[in-house]
Design a protein around this nucleic acid. Structure first.
Lengths: 175, 175
DNA sequence: TATTTACAGGACCCATTTGGTCCTGTATTC
DNA sequence: GAATACAGGACCAAATGGGTCCTGTAAATA
């Protein structure tokens, strides 16, 4: 269905790993309370190639989603609480502010949404998707209860009734 | 943010064009009531290159979203009412049953979602996105009123309140 | 202060995909 | 039977993405 880069794919997985590693707010350690994991540890936990993990971590740090610490006891930690980090923000940090289509590439003329009858379908779709992604946080992703509410069957059932799509409903899952 | 192929981009625009062309259910013409436009006409209306439009139309027809008529007075028409065609279905028809990440490539082991702690974040995200896309129909895309309801600010406000019910408030915002 | 660890920031390359065109065949209308 | 329009491919150039690796700099420790 959609496609986003492998970097983003890994990024979310890594962030979830970092969130999981948080021991429910450790005994407050001074300011920099967040415990950290280094690139190697994260690569092992996620079972992903270290160079890629490292690349992703750097990108997330540049985007302000993570904080890094150099040196012997260095590593990465979340810059915010998982409850405050939306999926929308995570993806934006990794993919850049792009959108579903290339509407606003180039001219700023697209501010005139009203006059742009051609592209308007995509404006609507983009907003709907953004909204739903802004409604999930990193905390939700690591919360078993939240996941349970969204069992495949429940999800598919909803889709089914709403979609009446051309058959392929079974597929609406992740590739 | 996300990215989907140009074909899908064009496809939605073309479908919106076809939906707009429907004169509120013309005087019922026998069975095949839907008026049709041919590839050339659609290319002109959407201001897109004819070969691409043609390619997209063929794909949509194969997927069952459109019906085609050959010959001199041939053309394409919607196979269903715009109210019954979800964005989710349109995208699936054009992009195939792929999803955000490549989780289920290869092994079917991913049925064991519970055991797959690594990928589960993406399962959740995919479902949320799917649900929101299944909540919009082609009719919504061509309804000026619907678009108006979705100013960026309004959308965000709603999300916030509905936050942990990722499902589908048909309204939301994006990009 | 020397050494080690780990992040920062690139450059770089190859395989794949995409966007786009075009050509041949078949059905339909007049 | 001539013209129109869809069906279904093949095909290609260009861009993109996934992935690795190399050189620098900051921090901790002995």
């Amino acid at each position: 269905m959609f496609r986003l880069s492998r970097v983003t794919d890994y990024g979310i997985v890594i962030l979830a790993e970092l969130a999981r590693h948080r021991p429910d707010d450790e005994p407050a350690e001074l300011m920099s309370g967040a415990p950290s994991l280094n690139a190697r540890e994260l690569a092992e936990r996620a079972d992903l190639p270290l160079p890629m993990v490292s690349k992703v971590l750097k990108a997330l740090t540049r985007a302000g989603v993570l904080e890094s610490q150099r040196g012997t006891k260095g590593g990465y930690s979340l810059a915010r609480d998982p409850e405050e980090l939306t999926v929308s923000a995570m993806i934006a940090a990794l993919e850049g502010p792009l959108a579903l289509t290339q509407c606003s590439d180039g001219e700023a003329a697209c501010d005139l949404e009203a006059t742009c009858s051609v592209k308007s379908p995509w404006l609507i779709i983009n907003r709907v998707v953004q909204n739903s992604l802004a409604s999930i946080t990193l905390a939700d992703l690591t919360n078993p209860g939240f996941a349970a509410q969204h069992t495949p069957l429940a999800g598919l059932a909803q889709l089914q009734t709403l979609a009446d799509a051309p058959a392929k409903t079974t597929s609406d899952e992740v590739r």
